[in-house]
């Protein structure tokens, strides 16, 4: 009798891998349809940039707050020298900056020295960089990973978020039309 029970128990154990796998699949399924994770969750869309007070990368004495940034349309680009995809994205940002697009960088979970070396080695497309060393602002912004780019309007309201690399296609098809429209808005 007791023997029977142990056999049953060990049989049940054999279903563990299956159970684990099915849970895993649910996760993947949810991940696949996570409310278009390339865009900002609708709850956060059209919210103002969260409050923060952080130093600039090149001028560590200057403190930037969400108020400092108001007045102009800009792209807030989250990057880190540790992120290979940012490296791929970088040249296109340089191109955009040369065309006069205002890009503000968020140096995300990075060592300042590494970030500075990166900017010195490659070109610096950023009007300036905000240092978010512990990723606190990143959490408030709902940053999923780097690179990510937020489009912020003149009133400091986030109007769009792009996860992943901004390249020619993303810019021309998605960001540029919105950017142009926001430029025309009056304060």
């Amino acid at each position: 009798m007791s023997n029977d029970k142990t056999v049953k128990k060990s049989r049940l154990k054999l279903f563990l891998p299956l159970a684990f796998f099915l849970t895993f699949c649910i996760l993947l399924y949810v991940g696949l349809f996570l409310e278009d994770k390339k865009e900002l969750p609708s709850a956060l869309l059209n919210d103002p940039v969260p409050e923060f007070s952080l130093p600039k990368l090149k001028q560590p004495n200057e403190i930037v707050t969400q108020e400092t940034l108001k007045g102009q349309v800009y792209l807030l680009n989250v990057w880190g020298s540790w992120c290979p995809a940012c490296k791929v994205e970088h040249p296109y940002l340089v191109k955009l900056a040369k065309r006069g697009v205002r890009i503000i960088g968020l140096s995300y979970k990075d060592e300042d020295a590494d970030a500075l070396r990166w900017l010195q080695r490659l070109e610096d497309p950023y009007t300036f960089n905000i240092v978010d060393k512990d990723g606190r602002l990143g959490v408030d912004l709902g940053v999923y990973g780097a690179p990510e780019t937020f489009l912020v309007d003149k009133k400091g309201i986030i109007r769009y978020k792009h996860v992943g690399i901004v390249d020619q296609r993303v810019w021309v098809e998605v960001l540029k039309p919105k950017y142009g429209q926001l430029q025309k808005e009056v304060l």
Partner: peptide
């Protein structure tokens, strides 16, 4: 990152 996101616990990235 996906797990945390799916459980709606905010968003996290795991680095090297």
């Amino acid at each position: 990152p996906l797990l945390v996101d799916a459980l709606d616990l905010g968003m996290v990235s795991v680095g090297p």
